[in-house]
């Protein structure tokens, strides 16, 4: 059974790093109502047997304009990302959605701990932008790792939010040393242990990234007393 699709145009494109770009889609014919953390499924006119279906997270929350913002990293020999790195403003994209259940509970009554690696930040960034519309009702912690300083996507905005919101605790790390970086270097787990080791499981853990990252982080939270299903995990590989 086919899902209903709709088509809209690329309105703007912005490079966020050498490997990551943001694509702004014009308001589609049917407004897309979504919760931060959800994604849409693009039907791309490429591949041996088009359409090639690929899912991309909405990286900015709903706004009155109805525009949609996607973010993606360039993958060598990845048909979908190569196509999306070639599209230009005015090109059409067809999609299905919104989809997905990696979303915050409503109302938010429990502290949240986010753990993300690289482009796994996208759904979390979307949630954080939405949360910034009002004072935080709970403490929100983000442990976020990037492959290099220039690939630590949205770092400046996240740091600025942490500077003005006392209940947002931001802990970035780089997976390897990078010029100009004075912060922590190493995997995200090295930050999670001192931050949360021994704390009772009285918060909501949410993890997003590739499985190689997400699996050991979920195990860490299980070691802290969470049931496997209490750890919300979104992976994309």
């Amino acid at each position: 059974m086919r899902q209903p699709t709709q088509t809209t145009r690329v309105e703007a494109i912005r490079a966020l790093s050498p490997h990551v770009r943001e694509i702004v889609l014009a308001p589609p014919p049917e407004p897309v109502r979504f919760r931060p953390g959800q994604w849409i499924s693009l039907h791309l006119p490429v591949g041996e047997k088009p359409p090639l279906v690929r899912a991309y997270t909405l990286s900015a929350p709903e706004d009155p304009s109805g525009r949609l913002v996607l973010c993606l990293d360039r993958v060598s020999s990845g048909l979908g990302s190569e196509y999306l790195f070639r599209v230009r403003p005015g090109d059409e994209l067809t999609f299905v959605g919104p989809l997905g259940n990696f979303v915050l509970p409503e109302p938010l009554t429990q502290d949240v701990v986010f753990a993300a690696r690289y482009t796994g930040i996208m759904p979390i960034r979307c949630m954080l932008l939405d949360l910034q519309r009002r004072p935080l009702p709970v403490d929100v912690t983000l442990v976020y790792g990037g492959p290099s300083r220039e690939e630590l996507i949205y770092h400046e905005g996240l740091a600025a939010y942490a500077a003005r919101e006392p209940r947002f605790h931001y802990h970035p790390t780089l997976l390897r040393p990078s010029p100009g970086w004075c912060g922590p270097v190493g995997e995200e787990l090295h930050l999670l242990h001192p931050l949360l080791g021994g704390r009772p499981p009285d918060y909501l853990p949410m993890v997003c990234g590739i499985k190689e990252f997400a699996r050991p982080v979920r195990t860490f939270f299980q070691e802290q007393g969470f049931e496997r299903r209490q750890v919300k995990v979104e992976t994309y590989d």
Binding site: L42, R54, V75, S76, K211
Partner: peptide, 10 residues
């Protein structure tokens, strides 16, 4: 999301 990336282990 989408596709594969250099950090993937199948």
């Amino acid at each position: 999301m989408g596709g594969t990336n250099p950090y993937i282990k199948q």
